[in-house]
């Protein structure tokens, strides 16, 4: 029934002078930006989580440079990956609760595009600050200087794939009251390739090699996620809405 309603709306949109898909996307971007900036706690928490997890490692393993420096790429990447995952948990839930997600589905505009607007804003406001914070945490873990640039680049490319793939899990678990652990269980296996290439890039950079092949593969993963994940996210959202 929803499908016929959506088709009807699309037909109507063609006839009358309703806003185009592009302008709706821009409006969605603006709405998401406003909404997410107003939830300041949700913006800060992933950063604090990231820093806190990184701080645990010197305390848990050893504070000496000989031990910390070799594990720094892995620690930074795992902590960043978990922080991104945690921050995605509540991506669609508020919109589902207040009914705006259902309105978006009924609007006749592409649900995938609207979800992408949400993810884009989320990436800009959560992942980007995380990436900018990472070099400072890298210094604290004695990460060699020549790896800092690669750290930034690999996180920049990798976080795109992380956000997009995590969005699928967030869409499927939006209907649950609390889904933190389930979402982790669903999504983490899919993060493994990103982790491997991300840390691989940094380790080649540290050992003096060329990190470009690893970065290229990370870019390929991000591109693949960008082409396939929107449809999976939209399908996941439709499934979640059908269960409400």
């Amino acid at each position: 029934m929803n499908k016929t309603a959506a088709t009807f709306c699309r037909l109507k949109a063609k006839k009358s002078n309703l806003p185009s898909q592009g302008s709706v996307f821009l409006a969605a971007l603006a709405r998401e930006g406003r909404l997410q900036v107003r939830r300041r706690g949700d913006l800060l928490n992933p950063l604090v989580f990231f820093a806190l997890v990184v701080v645990l490692f010197p305390l848990g393993i050893s504070p000496t440079e000989e031990i910390l420096a070799p594990v720094a790429p892995g620690v930074l990447w795992v902590a960043a990956l978990l922080a991104v995952l945690m921050s995605l948990d509540a991506l669609f839930r508020p919109d589902l609760m207040d009914g705006s997600l259902e309105q978006q589905q009924l609007s006749g505009y592409s649900l995938a595009a609207l979800a992408m607007a949400k993810l884009a804003v989320h990436w800009l406001l959560t992942s980007l600050p995380l990436i900018l914070l990472s070099p400072f945490l890298g210094i604290m873990l004695y990460l060699p200087w020549e790896a800092q640039g690669v750290l930034l680049l690999s996180l920049l490319l990798g976080s795109l794939a992380l956000s997009l793939v995590g969005g699928i899990g967030a869409a499927l678990t939006a209907g649950l009251g609390k889904s933190g652990v389930l979402m982790t269980l669903l999504v983490l296996p899919f993060y493994i390739p990103v982790l491997i290439f991300g840390t691989g890039a940094m380790q080649t950079a540290i050992s003096g090699g060329n990190a470009l092949p690893h970065l290229a593969l990370l870019g390929a993963l991000a591109a693949l996620a960008l082409t396939l994940a929107p449809w999976a996210i939209a399908a996941g959202l439709r499934i979640t809405l059908s269960g409400e």
Binding site: I168, G175, L182, I239
Partner: peptide
């Protein structure tokens, strides 16, 4: 775990398929 968590059955089925 996804199947266990989601209700109703129809939603869980489609979610697991995806």
């Amino acid at each position: 775990a996804l199947r266990e968590a989601l209700k109703p059955q129809d939603t869980a089925a489609k979610a697991c398929a995806l």
